[in-house]
Design a protein around this nucleic acid. Structure first.
Lengths: 167, 167
DNA sequence: GGCAAATACTTAACATGTTAAGTTTATCCG
DNA sequence: CGGATAAACTTAACATGTTAAGTATTTGCC
């Protein structure tokens, strides 16, 4: 009676049940709150992630930073180049291994973080109030569990299942 | 005793408690499973979203499609141009309003979907097995609730909180 | 009717995501 | 020791994310 507007019969679940879509929408709803504040300080979301990651340590190798800030190497390379040009970070080469770069946040970078942090924390607090601290903690746990449960799947079932459809 | 590796004192919560980061990591863990299959068929994640959205209806206006596939206008414009060049979609102009474009999936697009859908469903099934159908449903609900709870926040508390820090 | 404002895109410009290839330096091993 | 491999980035190329501007049509209103 009401398959919305006809549509074509394709053997797929409803779009609304797509997990990646649900995660994307939720993330965007959250990020939409932070972006304007970051933008006022001339920072992108990824640049902010890098500064936060660097502020938590004394220094970090590039590969380690990529893992911490959850960025791919090529993206990180470009962003570090720009952040260094803005003097928000400092970089040197490891003495024992000339292949490795070592990055740290600069005084200027720390000063910028201190400017941004309060409004960022205020927004996070507002989100927590709205959604509920308990639910937020529960969501965090479920997201972590999801990530963990898929950790080893990469080269197993999923790819096999996909591959078997290729034959 | 163990603030990891020193780090600089900045008034921010731990990076690991960042909600956007948790959502990003979870989403990436999921998408990592799907991307290879899509890639084998020459599709990006966003192109696939558009095809899925179009397969569920007879036709859609561009603005409506942007909302459904959760893409920004400029991204959608580019992708539709490419999908049309590949003849996976068809587009025309609305008779009653020449500003509006009307898009629909083509026969070729449907055929491609039928090729991709099985492996996509298989992967989704594998994820569901791993994580648990019940938990997955619960996660979906919590993500929807989060999105809903932040819906009206945009121009209220968060921005005010952020703005007040600007003074 | 006709002009100002709004709507529905599209284009532009710059930043990042993603995969592949390239470069430099270390490490392995015969 | 020295060549083959591997490791740690960096660069390249193309697709999308994001904001601002631009274009074509339509609406609202006097």
């Amino acid at each position: 009676m009401s398959p919305a507007l006809q549509g074509h019969r394709v053997p797929m679940r409803e779009f609304s049940r797509s997990l990646p879509m649900a995660l994307l929408r939720a993330r965007e709803a959250v990020m939409r709150q932070f972006r304007p504040s970051l933008r006022r300080h001339g920072l992108t979301e990824q640049q902010w992630r890098i500064l936060r990651a660097l502020a938590a340590v004394d220094a970090s190798e590039v590969t380690e930073l990529a893992r911490t800030a959850f960025l791919l190497g090529p993206s990180l390379s470009r962003i570090l180049r720009d952040l260094e040009a803005r003097r928000l970070i400092e970089r040197r080469t490891a003495e024992t291994d000339l292949r490795r770069g070592v990055v740290s946040i600069s005084e200027k970078g720390l000063k910028l973080m201190e400017e941004v942090a309060p409004s960022s924390e205020a927004i996070y607090a507002a989100i927590t109030r709205r959604y509920g601290a308990r639910k937020l903690a529960e969501l965090h746990a479920m997201l972590g569990a999801l990530e963990a449960s898929l950790a080893g799947l990469d080269t197993e079932e999923a790819s096999e299942a996909a591959a078997s459809e290729q034959e």
